[in-house]
Simulated assay, not measured.
Amino acid sequence: MDGLPPLVDHHCHGVIRYAPDAGTFAAFLTESDRPPAAGTTYFDTQTGFAVRRWCPPLLDLPAHCPPEEYLARRRELGPAETRRRLLSATGIGAYLVDTGLPGDLTGPDETAAAGGGAGHEVVRLEALAERVAADYRGSERAARAGEFVDALGRAVRAAARTAVAFKSVAAYRHGLALDPRPPGPDVVRTAVRTWLGAGAPRLTDPVLLRHLVQLAVATGRPLQLHTGFGDPDLRLDHADPALLTDLVRATADTGTDLVLLHGYPYHRQAAYLAGAFPHVYADVGLSLTHTGPRATAVLAEFLELAPFGKLLFSTDAYGLPELYAVGSALFRVALGEVLGGWVASGAWSAADARRVAAMIAAGTARRVYGLAGVNDGAGNGK
């Protein structure tokens, strides 16, 4: 859609610094963490076709060129130049980067610099807790539960001073049907003793996940919550955003905004919650990247119930700069087709369509996350 302000990618990840081989590249085109079935490739997906549609021209190749030709050109240019070309073509002006994933990935500043934008950090709560737990090693770790709890609280508060938001992946670690009540201090310490005593493995204890959510809510920073589809590490039916209804009610008067990420195929539930509760917002990212030419239909479904100032653009790009290019391109096309169609039918005015487009593209994210240059298209501030 023409005339949009610089996009705010309110949820994304770093980009790999190395040149991937064909198998590694293709693995980033899917949410699966498994190899493709024999005789198939992840290039034969909506995401794979979208990459071949939008990215080759940015590397001086024809659209839809074969994957082998595209990857050869990528190797010729090198990772840094490929990253610069792809990210600078997205129209993204601000990158809110979740830094909780492992690997040799670019951070917020490096990612944003390649695209000519500004970088901001989103802190993943579970990864933060696991880093704090690394300091509580040895045979006495379980006896130091109270000390760990205090250290974790300090770490969350310290992160809130520089991060623009927190993120929880409780959907992966347990599911979204969490008790919305803050767990009591004794219950938390008991859970910590068990976790530390087991060697502080991957954090899946529902008590500690609830405690992390409550710590984040207390800071006043927006809290992003993964909902909907992802890799096979989650149970899809446990990631329905409707399961968060009790938590949404319990946090209604805290002053903290909740941002429901992804949503698909439960994006209508996310849109409903955004419409029913003033502090809830819904993200349209990732869903569009993985639905390709059907992104127009998916975006229209988001817009059925959600107030227009409650939706936010993102790419959820991870690993490949191509996913930034695809996510932003599909968003522009889908937004133009949906809103343009409504204008053509007489349902909307052109002025209203431009205003709503600016909200979703950037203005609402700037307002919710407190970014400089707030302008959500509606004259609202926060």
Rank of each mutant, 00 (worst) to 15 (best):
S314E: 03
E337H: 06
L178R: 03
P67R: 07
G341R: 13
L96V: 12
H226N: 13
D246C: 02
F25N: 11
L288P: 00
E147R: 12
G116M: 01
L247A: 08
T24Q: 13
E301V: 00
H11A: 15
G336E: 08
H11L: 15
G100D: 00
N375L: 10
E110R: 00
K382P: 06
L243D: 09
N380T: 04
H64P: 02
T296Q: 14
G199W: 14
H279P: 01
G381Q: 12
L236S: 09
V187N: 08
L77D: 13
R268S: 08
D21W: 06
G48Q: 05
A329E: 13
V333M: 06
A163F: 07
L247D: 05
G336Q: 04
G379D: 13
L273K: 10
A347Y: 01
L58N: 08
H290D: 03
S32W: 02
P66A: 10
P206K: 14
A200Y: 01
R141Y: 01
A270D: 01
V15P: 07
S314A: 09
T111F: 00
D352T: 06
F166P: 04
P36D: 03
F277N: 05
V248Q: 02
H13K: 11
T245Q: 08
R235F: 14
G230R: 10
A218H: 04
L288N: 05
R210V: 07
P232H: 06
G263P: 06
A129L: 00
T291Y: 02
I360K: 11
